[in-house]
Simulated scan of single mutants.
Amino acid sequence: MEAARRDLDLMRDSPAAWPQLRYEPATGADGFEYDRHAARRAGLLWAMQYDRRADDLPLLRLLAEQEAVCRRSAPFQGLTEETELAGFLLAEHARVEDVWLHWQIKRANFDTWCGYDVEHLVAAGVQATVDFVRVSAHPDRADVLERLLDDDGQPCVSEDDVDEWAENERSRFPADLATEDPLRWVERAKLIGDTALARRWLDEWAAGRERDKSTLGVLRYELADLGAFALAAQAQRESLRYADTDWERASAWQSLAELERLAGDHRAAWQALGECRRALADVSGWTEVGLGRMYVEQLFLLACSADDELAGVVFAEADRQAGDVPRLPLVVLRAAADAADKVGDQARAEHYRRLRDAEQQRIDVERGRATP
């Protein structure tokens, strides 16, 4: 937070630096497009959450505007916590003229349309906002009125609704850093790429908690997301005791196998896949469902990762199981071809490459990218 606070102080003192916060598409090392300034805007919003000032309104409006641009322009669009935080902080200023800025966020994409609460638009007062929009010449006037009013021309939310919503949002985005949920800071630390900080917040959250099903589920997900696969596997192994049905046991063992493989413990992954197969034996029609295909995929992926001796054993089992599972998806066929190459089985490699290429062709035709 110290870096975010310093940046907020800089922006408060230097409006000339605000253009540095605008949405700017860039391409990451993974080939995906991202907003070069998203993390910096996020840090400023976090700092504003815990240091709210009336004279920050112009800066806050810029941040909210750029969040709207980002949600509209980003490849995966969506609705992020940072966009919601910008909207909430803007709503707290209760300026009726900000209805248009909230509307920009609301209509940015499908996710914001569904998830960005309409209460943002009327945070300055329901009737006051409706009256303001009615007499406006703004080009979005008709669309905003259509969203704010029901079929009888009455506001779709009441003043009491807005008050209740505001209280809930204040609990969700507290002004006191000490009352913040540590898991929120895990996600925020990941956003700015600070894995060590994320681990510290996760450890703080987990300290003293009962390692029940819910806690273990969070730990498994967060640790894996942070690349701590061995610890994630440990949490997943502990959670096996909560798997009550054959389906749940098969799924739990399959998840453990993936984590053990990613952690580099290929023998443990192989053992987990054996347990997964034993559980699948009691799942009716397992070869026809996604869980069965995921099991086969994990076998091929393990064959790709394991040392030569184990890889050969695993590939033989994967190849045998694949024969019983119809309609293997493209991702599995790719792994199968790679695994066959890894173990030096050229005949099976060619077999899986033919299946892979045929499936790719089918997909391309279906999407209109190729002709039959």
Rank of each mutant, 00 (worst) to 15 (best):
C70S: 15
C70F: 15
C70T: 14
R71A: 15
R72P: 00
R72G: 07
S73C: 07
S73L: 13
A74K: 10
A74I: 07
P75D: 07
F76D: 12
F76T: 15
F76K: 15
Q77P: 00
Q77F: 03
Q77A: 14
G78T: 10
L79S: 02
L79E: 01
T80R: 14
T80K: 13
E81I: 00
E82D: 14
E82C: 08
E82G: 05
T83L: 08
T83P: 01
T83Q: 05
E84M: 14
E84C: 10
L85W: 04
L85K: 06
A86H: 09
A86E: 04
G87L: 08
G87K: 06
F88D: 05
L90K: 06
L90D: 04
A91E: 02
A91K: 02
A91F: 03
E92V: 07
E92K: 09
E92D: 12
H93G: 03
H93K: 08
H93C: 09
A94Y: 01
R95P: 01
R95K: 11
R95D: 13
V96I: 13
E97P: 00
E97V: 10
E97C: 05
D98I: 10
D98F: 11
D98S: 13
V99W: 02
V99F: 02
V99E: 03
V99R: 06
V99L: 03
W100C: 14
W100R: 14
W100E: 13
L101S: 08
L101P: 07
H102C: 07
H102W: 03
W103R: 12
Q104D: 15
I105T: 14
I105P: 06
K106M: 01
K106I: 00
R107C: 04
A108N: 00
N109W: 01
N109L: 04
N109Q: 01
N109F: 01
F110H: 04
F110Q: 11
D111I: 07
D111F: 06
T112F: 12
T112H: 14
T112Y: 11
T112N: 11
W113K: 10
W113P: 00
W113H: 12
G115Y: 03
G115A: 04
Y116G: 03
Y116E: 01
D117K: 13
D117I: 00
D117W: 08
D117M: 05
V118L: 15
V118M: 05
V118D: 11
E119C: 15
E119F: 01
E119D: 09
H120I: 04
H120Y: 11
L121G: 07
L121I: 09
L121A: 12
L121M: 15
L121S: 09
V122E: 03
A123I: 12
A123T: 11
A124T: 12
A124P: 11
G125T: 09
G125E: 13
V126W: 05
Q127W: 11
Q127E: 15
Q127F: 06
T129A: 09
T129N: 07
T129E: 06
T129H: 07
V130Q: 04
